[in-house]
């Protein structure tokens, strides 16, 4: 692949970077990233990856845009309320960068479909809002040997880590979903909109650095921040030999759906 003049100009600020250059930008253009969830996290991830020129972006989300989403899900605008989120997001991506191929999946990911979706992508972004999906994504990526970025946000807090095959996974750290009701969801607890942007852009940077193959990813380390006091810290994560999915004697060998929490009343009513 060689860059045309318009691409050279569009991506000039990447090309200038020693760690990206022409070679790195070509890798980005050839990259395929799947974004699961086009909400608070998925919105900034999709915007930055589109701007950066990631050649293929997959978007999966079953929901429609609601007025309460606009406080943080910056890829959706007021006239989009009511539209499927993947459609709204896809339109914005095309508006920013017509070079990008967008593939949309207007669906929740299920145990029997997820493996088929992720297999075509180089890197997966977890931008979902519930534990059932998070563990499903983790298990699917571990079993499918796909790198992915985990992201979680609540109130003023954010956490993220990047799984790469052979390293610690999300289950090594947390085992399984917390008991029902132990952790409130965003709609119950609230979220500072900008926190979604902070974490989403970190995830986007992980995806880009994975594609160009430079720097240290957040692999085997969990980055945690609290935006109320604006403090960041890192926790070293070790691969757990007793991990149910990636340990020595794994108990999870096929994917199963765990029941997602019923967390969004408005959405329930409509469907």
């Amino acid at each position: 692949m060689s860059l045309n003049d318009e691409q050279i100009e569009r991506y000039s600020r990447h090309i200038i970077l020693k760690d990206i250059g022409v070679e790195g930008q070509e890798k980005i253009l050839a990259g395929k990233v799947l974004i699961l969830g086009t909400g608070g996290l998925g919105a900034p991830v999709a915007l930055y990856l589109a701007a950066a020129g990631v050649g293929t972006l997959g978007l999966a989300d079953p929901d429609h845009v609601e007025l309460s989403n606009l406080q943080r899900q910056v890829i959706h605008f007021a006239p989009d309320v009511g539209k499927p989120k993947v459609v709204s997001a896809s339109e914005k991506i095309q508006a920013i960068n017509p070079d990008i191929q967008v593939i949309t999946y207007q669906t929740r990911v299920f145990a029997d479909t997820i493996a088929g979706i992720i297999k075509d992508y180089d890197f997966i972004i977890d931008g979902t809002d519930n534990f059932a999906a998070k563990f499903l994504i983790n298990d699917a990526c571990v079993l499918g040997a796909k790198p992915f970025s985990h992201g979680g946000i609540l109130r003023f807090d954010g956490q993220t880590m990047t799984y790469q095959p052979g390293h610690a996974c999300y289950r090594c750290l947390f085992g399984g979903p917390p008991p029902k009701g132990a952790v409130p969801s965003c709609s119950q607890a609230g979220i500072l909109g900008a926190v979604a942007g902070m974490l989403g852009t970190i995830q986007a940077a992980e995806a880009l650095r994975f594609l160009i193959g430079k720097g240290e990813l957040l692999t085997d380390r969990l980055l945690i921040f609290n935006a109320l006091d604006m403090k960041f810290r890192e926790v070293t994560v070790r691969k757990n030999p007793r991990c149910p999915v990636c340990g020595k004697n794994p108990s999870i060998k096929t994917l199963v759906d765990e029941e997602p929490p019923v967390c969004d009343l408005k959405h329930q009513k409509r469907s």
Binding site: L3, I8, S12, I16, G21, E23
Partner: peptide
């Protein structure tokens, strides 16, 4: 600047 540098890098890459 900086497009001249960018173009130089593009050439060097080849």
């Amino acid at each position: 600047c900086p497009m001249n540098f960018v173009k130089t890098k593009v050439e060097l890459a080849q």
